[in-house]
Amino acid sequence: MTLSILDLAPIVSGGTAADALRNTLDLAQRAERLGYRRYWVAEHHFAPGVASAAPAVLIALIAAATATIRVGSGAVQLGHQTPLAVVEQFGLIDALHPGRIDLGIGRSGQRRAELAAGPAPAEPAAARTVDGLLIPSPFDFSKLAGHPHLVHYATLLQQPGARTPDFADQIDDVLAFLDGGHEAHAVPGEGADVQVWILGSSGGQSARVAGERGLPFAANYHVSPAGVLEAVGAYREAFKPSGTLEEPYVIVSADAVVAADESAARELAEGYGLWVRSIRTGAGAMPYPTPDEARAHVWTDADRELVKDRIDTRFVGSPEQVAEGLRVLRRVTGADELLVTTITHRHDDRVRSYELLAGAWNRP
Score class of each variant (00 low, 15 high):
residue 32 E to S: 05
residue 146 G to I: 04
residue 154 A to Q: 15
residue 16 T to V: 07
residue 82 T to K: 10
residue 174 V to Y: 00
residue 173 D to V: 03
residue 332 V to S: 00
residue 334 G to R: 12
residue 58 L to W: 04
residue 111 R to H: 13
residue 273 G to N: 09
residue 78 L to H: 02
residue 36 Y to K: 09
residue 239 F to H: 11
residue 224 S to P: 07
residue 341 T to S: 09
residue 216 P to E: 03
residue 117 A to V: 09
residue 321 Q to Y: 08
residue 174 V to H: 01
residue 197 W to S: 08
residue 161 G to K: 03
residue 78 L to T: 08
residue 211 G to V: 00
residue 77 Q to P: 05
residue 256 A to W: 04
residue 321 Q to D: 00
residue 129 T to W: 05
residue 357 L to Y: 00
residue 76 V to W: 02
residue 77 Q to W: 04
residue 144 L to E: 04
residue 248 P to H: 11
residue 305 E to M: 10
residue 139 F to V: 04
residue 229 L to Y: 01
residue 77 Q to S: 02
residue 294 A to R: 09
residue 340 V to C: 11
residue 305 E to H: 13
residue 320 E to N: 14
residue 198 I to H: 05
residue 44 H to K: 12
residue 189 G to C: 12
residue 85 A to E: 09
residue 358 A to Q: 06
residue 227 G to E: 03
residue 309 D to G: 09
residue 124 P to V: 07
residue 361 W to P: 05
residue 324 E to N: 14
residue 111 R to Q: 13
residue 307 V to T: 15
residue 122 A to Q: 05
residue 142 S to D: 12
residue 234 A to Q: 04
residue 47 A to V: 10
residue 208 R to D: 04
residue 345 H to R: 06
residue 330 R to N: 07
residue 149 H to Q: 13
residue 159 Q to Y: 03
residue 216 P to G: 12
residue 59 I to A: 06
residue 143 K to Y: 11
residue 41 V to T: 15
residue 303 D to E: 13
residue 103 L to A: 08
residue 52 S to R: 03
residue 301 D to G: 14
residue 277 R to V: 03
residue 313 T to S: 14
residue 154 A to E: 14
residue 344 T to S: 07
residue 309 D to N: 14
residue 312 D to M: 14
residue 357 L to E: 03
residue 166 D to I: 10
residue 96 L to Y: 13
residue 130 V to I: 08
residue 81 Q to F: 14
residue 99 G to W: 11
residue 221 Y to M: 05
residue 302 A to W: 00
residue 336 D to G: 11
residue 113 A to D: 13
residue 261 D to L: 14
residue 150 L to D: 10
residue 254 A to P: 01
residue 314 R to I: 02
residue 68 T to K: 12
residue 152 H to M: 13
residue 3 L to E: 05
residue 106 G to C: 10
residue 128 R to V: 02
residue 149 H to E: 11
residue 313 T to N: 14
residue 353 S to Y: 01
residue 109 G to S: 14
residue 286 M to D: 02
residue 56 A to T: 01
residue 115 L to T: 02
residue 165 P to T: 13
residue 321 Q to T: 14
residue 114 E to Y: 11
residue 257 V to W: 06
residue 249 Y to T: 09
residue 118 G to P: 02
residue 20 A to G: 08
residue 86 V to A: 11
residue 258 V to R: 05
residue 329 L to A: 09
residue 239 F to E: 02
residue 70 R to Q: 15
residue 290 T to C: 08
residue 251 I to F: 00
residue 97 H to Y: 15
residue 15 G to I: 03
residue 70 R to W: 05
residue 20 A to Q: 06
residue 209 V to Q: 07
residue 131 D to F: 05
residue 288 Y to S: 08
residue 136 P to C: 03
residue 248 P to F: 10
residue 282 G to D: 09
residue 158 Q to W: 04
residue 137 S to T: 15
residue 73 S to A: 15
residue 159 Q to N: 11
residue 197 W to F: 15
residue 145 A to L: 03
residue 325 G to V: 04
residue 226 A to E: 03
residue 262 E to I: 06
residue 240 K to F: 07
residue 2 T to N: 15
residue 127 A to P: 00
residue 346 R to S: 10
residue 178 L to E: 06
residue 220 N to W: 01
residue 158 Q to H: 01
residue 5 I to R: 00
residue 245 L to G: 11
residue 9 A to D: 00
residue 51 A to I: 10
residue 133 L to S: 07
residue 343 I to V: 15
residue 93 I to T: 06
residue 78 L to I: 13
residue 188 P to R: 12
